[in-house]
Each structure stands twice: as structure tokens, then as C-alpha cells.
Simulated assay, not measured.
Amino acid sequence: MDKIPMTIAGHKALSEELNHRSSVERPNIIAAISEARAHGDLSENAEYHAAKEQQSLNEGRIQELESILALADVIDVTKLGGNTIKFGATVELVDEDTEEEKTYQIVGNPEANASAGKISLSSPIARALIGKEEGDSIEVAAPGGSKAYEVLKVSYI
């Protein structure tokens, strides 16, 4: 499988989630299952079934996190530089229609969170930005129609 590019902060956040799920959530769920088993007949025990479902979801997420972290290619974006936009860049844009300014950091898929200003390397806007420089204009096909942006600033922080 291919390596997954990731920032140091993204790797740390996923590692912390894995640790929390393994060392806190897992024992809590096991305790809940044990308590539900003590209530008797498992076929009609909603608490037992809910705890088993929660255990299944938690274990699935643990496996997913372990896979992602095993394939992580951690990149220190503070050591990157230049004028062109690439992975890890923090980009200030202005919408050419509304004059609204937005700031995004281009990150790996597992750490993307658009509401926090972190967009996935594979998102349409990030793909349009890669290789561009300050002053360049881009056009992105969005669900509500095409959007045009101008790159105001590129930094690696």
C-alpha cells in the first residue's frame, strides 16, 4: 500500500485517539459488557447488545487507526518552503465573486477537517491549488457551480 502523507500535528492527534480508544474506551466497554451479562438472559438484554455494538465500532476504529499510522509518512511542514503550493501549505484565498477570504491548510486525508480549515490533499480545491503561487487564480468545480479564487498568501507554518 502507498504511504499516507500526514503532518506532525495530524499524526499526534491520531496517535492520541488510538491511545484513548485502547486504554480508556476498551476497558470501559468490557466493564459494561460484564455488567450487562450479570443481568441474565442475553437474548433480551438491550444493554448487552448495545455494549457489544459499541465494542465492535471501537475495535473497528482501533484497527483503522493502526493501519493509518502504520502507513503514515509524517512530514514536518515547518521545514518546507518555497513559493509554490504543495502538501502542508497554509493558503490564504479570496473568493473572486464575494471577496470573502478563506484560509486552508492542505493535509492528508485522515486529518482533513474543512470546518477547522484543513482540507484533504485529494479534495478538488487542493488539487486545483497544487503547483500554484501567490497571485494565481484557480477555478474549482463545486456542487453549487464553479468557484473562482485568487491565492493571496502561501506559508508553511
Rank of each mutant, 00 (worst) to 15 (best):
E44W: 12
I33F: 06
F87V: 12
H39K: 15
K102N: 14
E25A: 11
Q63P: 00
K118V: 04
Y104K: 03
V107F: 00
G81V: 10
T90A: 10
A36R: 03
I30V: 14
V24M: 11
G108D: 00
S43I: 11
S34M: 09
G40W: 05
A32K: 02
R61W: 00
G108L: 03
K102I: 13
N28D: 09
L121I: 09
A89R: 01
K102Y: 15
A89F: 01
S56N: 14
V74I: 08
T103H: 12
L42K: 15
A51P: 12
A50R: 09
H49A: 10
E25N: 10
Y104G: 04
S23W: 02
H49V: 01
A51M: 07
I62W: 07
H49P: 03
D76Q: 00
R21D: 03
Y104V: 09
A31Q: 14
N45S: 09
A51F: 08
T98K: 14
E25K: 06
A112W: 09
Y48V: 06
D73L: 09
E99K: 15
N113H: 03
V94H: 01
E53K: 12
D76W: 03
N113D: 14
A36E: 13
E59W: 01
E64S: 13
G81A: 08
L69R: 05
A46K: 11
I30K: 14
A72R: 01
E99D: 15
S122Q: 15
V94L: 06
G108Y: 07
T90M: 10
P27R: 10
K86V: 10
G40N: 05
I119V: 12
I75V: 08
N58P: 07
K86L: 02
S122L: 14
A31T: 08
A51Q: 08
A70E: 11
E100R: 14
S23N: 14
E44P: 02
R26P: 02
E96F: 00
G117Q: 12
S34K: 14
V107Q: 00
L65M: 04
V24G: 01
A70S: 12
A32R: 04
E47N: 07
E100Y: 11
A46I: 09
L42S: 09
E47T: 02
S115F: 07
N109F: 02
E44V: 12
Q63F: 07
N28E: 02
Y104C: 05
Y104A: 05
A51Y: 01
I33L: 09
R61V: 02
A32Q: 03
K86A: 10
S120K: 00
E101V: 06
K79P: 00
A116W: 07
E99I: 10
E53W: 07
G82A: 06
S67M: 03
E92D: 14
A72P: 08
Q105Y: 05
A72T: 03
A36L: 10
N28C: 06
N58W: 01
N113A: 15
E92R: 12
V91L: 06
N45Q: 13
E100W: 10
I119S: 00
A114R: 15
V107Y: 01
E100K: 15
N45V: 04
H49I: 11
K52E: 08
A70Y: 04
E59L: 08
K102V: 05
E35N: 08
N83G: 12
L93V: 12
